[in-house]
Computed example of a mutant assay.
Amino acid sequence: MADGLALHQVGVRFGGLTALDDVSLEVGPGEVVGVIGPNGAGKTTLFNVVCGFVTAHTGTLTLDGRPLRPRPHRLTRLGIARTLQGTGLFAGLTVLENVMAGATHTARVGLLPALLGLPRSDRDERRLREHARAVLDELGIAGYADAAPGTLPFAVRQRVGLARALAARPRLLLLDEPAGGLGADDVDTLAELIRGLPHRAADPCAVLLVEHHMDLVMAVCDRIVVLDFGRVVAAGAPEAVREDPAVVDAYLGAAVDEAA
């Protein structure tokens, strides 16, 4: 694949445990790709490889056909952003300030002008503030801009976390179980938001989604990759994956283990 993210036969080991084994997947521009599997299948490890928190022992990553060696502090400059389970918002900042924090890598002035309060710094802050407000408005939560995150319903905090990631203007957004803790109506709203991300008028982005909520995955994904014990056991369109015997076995096996 010339454009987008690709993992080529990636393997990860933790001591004697194989977390990922020969995993390959692609996320092209304009796509929503889901990664599903039972607990312990390797989904979080895969995300951590893409983010640079975990180094692959085998295989390679590419971005637009070029070798990718991700580092967490450089992700946004590569056009990659990630949301966190549990929102990960800064309690001491307002909603607007949290979203502005997601776009600080786009600041046009350095630390010294900001500390001295020079006019260039003021203009930069106004620009970031306006951009953050625009993202909040797009997600329908501009009315909470001055609120503290801890005072908000969980579903709103989840959307603030998404707004902060989008403020970085990513070309690829990694969504880590965004439906966790949401009710049915909120999941429907989230699905609509995710489906629209590759088609935004400004800053469209592809999506790599890890999620347990199967209805959401089936509703928003163009393609799905299924992991079980660190290996890809199925991949393809949602309709094909849903009926794949390997997927049924993986999830039925997980259900039996949890019930035991």
Rank of each mutant, 00 (worst) to 15 (best):
V247N: 04
R231M: 03
T87L: 07
A165Y: 11
D203I: 15
L115G: 00
C205P: 05
F154C: 02
L17E: 01
F154W: 11
E239I: 05
P178N: 13
H213C: 00
V160G: 04
R108G: 00
G183E: 07
A81Y: 06
L25A: 02
R71L: 01
G150W: 12
L96V: 08
V232T: 13
V10M: 14
L162V: 11
E192D: 15
P119D: 10
L152D: 10
L227G: 05
V54M: 06
E211F: 12
R171K: 13
L111A: 15
N98D: 02
A107N: 01
G110D: 15
D122C: 05
H212T: 01
R71G: 01
S24H: 07
E31G: 12
L193A: 02
R74T: 06
P29A: 00
V135Q: 11
D146Q: 14
A179C: 07
T189S: 15
M1L: 12
G230I: 05
L252D: 04
P113G: 05
R200C: 03
D122L: 09
R169W: 08
A19H: 03
R120L: 10
T44H: 06
L209A: 02
E258N: 05
T106W: 05
T60D: 09
L174W: 04
L63M: 13
V49Q: 03
P170F: 10
E243F: 00
L84F: 14
A81N: 07
A19I: 12
D188C: 01
A165L: 10
L93K: 14
G117A: 09
L115P: 00
G102M: 14
G52R: 10
M218G: 06
L111R: 12
L128V: 03
G253Y: 04
A142L: 13
E138H: 12
T151C: 11
V23S: 10
F229L: 10
R171I: 12
T18K: 08
L112F: 08
G150E: 10
C205G: 11
R82E: 07
I194L: 05
R133P: 15
L152F: 09
H8C: 02
D188H: 01
T55D: 02
V233K: 06
A250V: 11
R171Y: 03
A179T: 10
Q158N: 02
V226K: 06
V33M: 08
A148M: 12
R164F: 05
R129V: 10
M1S: 09
G11T: 13
H212I: 04
T76G: 12
F14G: 09
T62M: 06
R82S: 10
A91Y: 11
T189L: 14
V109T: 11
R164C: 05
L175A: 14
D137W: 13
A254D: 14
G4R: 02
G161W: 01
